[in-house]
Amino acid sequence: MIATTMFYLLGAVALGATGLAIIQRNPVYAVIYLVKSIFALALIFYLLGAPLLAALQVIVYAGAIMVLFLFVIMMLEVTPTNASTRSAPGWMQWAPVLFLTLTLVVLTLVLIGLDPATSEGIPRWHATPRDFGYTLFKEYALAVKIISFQLSFAAVGAFHVGMTERRRARLEDAS
């Protein structure tokens, strides 16, 4: 019962955060709201019986991919368009993010506080990291190899695209 209520609350948080993210003028604010949405989705993953994926969602999405976005936004020094400099009242800027953060923190604390011995504390069906790992590396071993190839192709591609003309000339001189 608690889990069902939490699912709807988290769904509302995810939708609200995503909706706020896509209307932001400044990409930095959009990334911040998107992190809230990703946290809400991670908690939903846990409620649906995927604890390992919930952790990976936070580590990979919020920790790596969103930080990559922030790096690029800061590197490019994109100035927001003029319309955003028109200052809204102060509370309109921090109230939504404060509200979403508080909701997420309270829901996380409720989830931590649930007694693991009861069926409310742990989802009735859930994939333990052990099950997950066995299936991943036995049945899907080929997929793991293909994905690792693809990641290295992506790294090579990113290097190639990111190479400037000057650096390319220097490489050709050296060879």
Binding site: L53, L68, F69, V72, T135, L136, Y140, I147, L151, F153
Partner: peptide, 28 residues
């Protein structure tokens, strides 16, 4: 079944690759 969760893991790897290439293109 655990298969759906493994597909999400693959999806995360694909997303990481896509973002790396996409942001490199944005910088370019």
């Amino acid at each position: 079944q655990v298969d759906g969760q493994i597909m999400v893991l693959i999806l995360m790897a694909i997303t990481a690759a896509e973002v790396a290439i996409g942001l490199a293109l944005v910088v370019y």
